[in-house]
C-alpha cells in the first residue's frame, strides 16, 4: 500500500477530527472534554496490534483482530459505523452551519458539504493530509487574536450529545489513519517517516503517540476556546469548525471509498447499498432529533452511497 500521510499530517487530522466532534458537543462540561480523549486513547491502544502487522488493505488491518482470515463481516460492520457517522455528521454539521446562514435552504448546505467532501475524497488522502496542515493558518491567528483580544471566561454547562459522535466512529478513524500512514512489505519505513529524517524504532508506538497527541491537542484547543471566547460572532472559530467538519466528512468519505474499492463494480454497488440502507434504517429506528426529516435522510444517504461507491470504484488514490 502506498503511504500517504506524514506523522505531522496524522497529528493534525486527528486534531481536526476530534475537534469537530467537540464542537458539536456545544459548550460541554469538562467531562465532555475528557471523554473523547479517553476514547481516542482506548482505541489507539487497541489499534496498536493492527499497526504492528504488515498489510496492504484496510481488510488486512482488521484481520489482525480476527481469529481467521475472513474479514467480510468485520469490514461490513466497520463500514456500517462509518456510513452511519457520515450521515450523523452531515445532519449535525448542516444544522450548526445553517444557524449562521438561515437564508440558505438546508438541502443546499448539505449539498455543499457533500460536494466538498467528495472533492477531497476524490483527490485522495494525501490532499486531505495537506488540507489538515493548512488548519495551522487558522490556529495561529486564533491564538493571537485571543491573546490580544478581550478575555471573557464563560460558564460551562453539561450536555454530552457530541461525545456520542466521537465515541461512535473513533475506531474507524484511528484504524484508517494508521493504515494510511504505514507501509506493508519489507521497506520498514514509510515515505512519511523518511521525510522526517529518521524512522522511529517502534513505528506503531510512534503512530499511537501521534494520534493521542492530536486528540489531546484538540481537547486543549476546545478548552482554550471555551475559556477565552472571541465573543458571540467569531468568524475564525466558525471557519475552523467548518473546516473540521469538512475534513472529518472527507475522511469518512475516503474510508467508504477505500472500503468499497473493488474491481467488480456491481459487487461494490450492492455492498454499498446494503451498508448504507442498514445504517439509515438502524439510525432511524433508534431515533434521535437529527433524524426527524426522514425524507431528507433517505435522499442524503442515497447521494452519499452513490458518490462514495463511484469514488471507491474509479477514483481512490
Amino acid at each position: 500500500m502506498k503511504t500517504h500521510l506524514t506523522p505531522f499530517q496524522l497529528f493534525l487530522l486527528t486534531f481536526l477530527y476530534v475537534f469537530s466532534g467537540l464542537s458539536l458537543a456545544d459548550a460541554d462540561s469538562f467531562l465532555a472534554l475528557i471523554l473523547p480523549f479517553a476514547a481516542v486513547l482506548l482505541w489507539a491502544v487497541i489499534g496498536y496490534r493492527g499497526a504492528t502487522k504488515k498489510r496492504a488493505e484496510l481488510s488486512d488491518f482488521l484481520s489482525a483482530y480476527m481469529p481467521k482470515k475472513e474479514t467480510a463481516i468485520p469490514l461490513a460492520f466497520f463500514l456500517f459505523t462509518v456510513a452511519a457517522e457520515a450521515v450523523c455528521l452531515l445532519m449535525d454539521a448542516g444544522t450548526v452551519l445553517t444557524l449562521e446562514a438561515d437564508f440558505i435552504p438546508f438541502p443546499l448546505v448539505l449539498a455543499v458539504l457533500i460536494a466538498i467532501a467528495c472533492l477531497t475524497a476524490k483527490k485522495g488522502v494525501t490532499v486531505l493530509g495537506r488540507l489538515a496542515e493548512l488548519s495551522l493558518f487558522l490556529l495561529v491567528p486564533l491564538v493571537l487574536v485571543h491573546l490580544f483580544g478581550a478575555f471573557h471566561p464563560i460558564q460551562m454547562s453539561g450536555e454530552a450529545s457530541g461525545v456520542r459522535l466521537v465515541f461512535s466512529v473513533m475506531p474507524s478513524s484511528v484504524f484508517f489513519l494508521l493504515s494510511m500512514t504505514t507501509v506493508s512489505g519489507d521497506e520498514g519505513t514509510s515515505d512519511g517517516f523518511r521525510s522526517t529524517g529518521r524512522a522511529p524504532r517502534d513505528r506503531a508506538g510512534f503512530l499511537i503517540k501521534t494520534v493521542i497527541g492530536g486528540a489531546g491537542f484538540a481537547v486543549l484547543a476546545r478548552a482554550f476556546l471555551l475559556m477565552f471566547p472571541f465573543g458571540e460572532h467569531a468568524l475564525l472559530v466558525y471557519f475552523l469548525e467548518y473546516m473540521a467538519y469538512a475534513v472529518k466528512l472527507s475522511l469518512l468519505f475516503s474510508i467508504l471509498a477505500h472500503g468499497f474499492r473493488k474491481k467488480n463494480a456491481k459487487y461494490a454497488t450492492v455492498l454499498a447499498m446494503l451498508m448504507l440502507s442498514a445504517a439509515v434504517f438502524t439510525l432511524a429506528t433508534v431515533g434521535g432529533a437529527v433524524f426527524s426529516p426522514f425524507l431528507w435522510l433517505v435522499l442524503l444517504v442515497s447521494l452519499n452511497l452513490t458518490v462514495s461507491t463511484m469514488l471507491g470504484i474509479f477514483a481512490v488514490k
Binding site: A101, I104, V112, V127, R130, L131, F239, M243
Partner: peptide, 20 residues
C-alpha cells in the same frame, strides 16, 4: 449569494484544489 457560508466554502474548495 451564500454569505459567510459560501465565502468559507469557496476558501475550502480553493484550499483543496491548491493542496492537490
Amino acid at each position: 449569494a451564500l454569505g459567510f457560508f459560501g465565502f468559507f466554502a469557496a476558501i475550502l474548495v480553493s484550499c483543496i484544489v491548491l493542496c492537490g
